[in-house]
């Protein structure tokens, strides 16, 4: 099993708030890694450090190293733009570009960057939408506004838009928490299908979801990594008392 992302001694601060404390974690390639823990424990913060989203927040400071394949993504020579093309992100609330059509949303990564090759566009749109099992639902209305879609469809469109730019890693921050059960199920099935090609890191506060979709699980509490390992092991035979308490619903 190859390590895709190696997090070493990661610390994230927002002014005085020490949100992530000395976290070291290996994320294996072509697996789904779940990040769980009570609200406010730093799950999103960790996830967002993997594609340098904290760069945009003036109060945020990141120390430590995150190695993607062999590049240190926080190295001075690493470009956040190129990192983000390799590490895509899906957000909690579906956020398609509201002024764009379904078609344009899929190729938004190319279009907005000014590197769209018209000849490839149709191909990219079709294959990306097929990959997220949305093609059959929308192929007759590609030129319609993306906001006409249901919440679950919008989220799958956002995943299609992410994979359209051909990343290796997809970060998902509670991607189904704003969706109904049926849409949630579809997203979970999709995650299962995507992992043959992508390394997926998913934040979730839903224990069953973590157990269903992930191969590995990391449990965080108050900014610290409490325990990480195979999902089956974490859920059936955790080493730490805190983990057990959280998983069995005794707190959080």
């Amino acid at each position: 099993m190859t390590t895709k992302i190696k997090i070493e001694d990661l610390n994230v601060y927002f002014r005085e708030t020490h949100a992530v404390k000395n976290v070291s974690l290996d994320i294996p390639q072509n697996r789904v890694t779940a990040i769980i823990g009570p609200s406010g424990c730093g799950k999103s913060t960790i996830l967002r450090s993997i594609n340098r989203m904290h760069d945009m927040i003036p109060t945020a400071r990141v120390t430590g190293r995150i190695i993607l394949d062999s590049t240190d993504i926080y190295d001075r020579t690493s470009s956040p733009v190129l990192i983000r093309r390799r590490v895509g992100m899906v957000f909690q609330k579906p956020n398609p570009f509201p002024a764009m059509t379904i078609y344009d949303n899929v190729i938004a990564g190319y279009k907005l960057s000014g590197r769209l090759n018209r000849a490839d566009a149709d191909e990219i749109v079709e294959s990306s939408l097929k990959r997220v099992a949305l093609w059959d639902e929308v192929k007759d209305r590609l030129r319609r506004n993306a906001m006409d879609l249901s919440g679950g469809q919008q989220q799958r469109l956002c995943i299609a838009r992410t994979i359209a730019v051909k990343p290796d890693v997809i970060l998902m921050d509670e991607p189904a928490s704003a969706l109904d059960p049926l849409s949630t199920l579809k997203i979970e099935e999709l995650i299962e299908e995507l992992k043959d090609k992508y390394t997926i890191v998913i934040v979730t506060h839903n224990m069953q979801q973590a157990a269903r979709v992930s191969d590995n699980t990391a449990f965080f509490y108050l900014g610290e990594l409490v325990e990480a390992g195979g999902t089956r092991k974490i859920f059936t035979n955790p080493e730490k008392k805190q983990t057990e308490d959280y998983i069995t619903g005794r707190f959080g």
Partner: peptide, 17 residues
């Protein structure tokens, strides 16, 4: 909404674009 800017940045679109 900030989520729109983040969506764009997360796709590897440069900041000024």
């Amino acid at each position: 909404p900030g989520t729109l800017r983040e969506a764009s940045l997360a796709l590897g679109v440069p900041f000024w674009r």
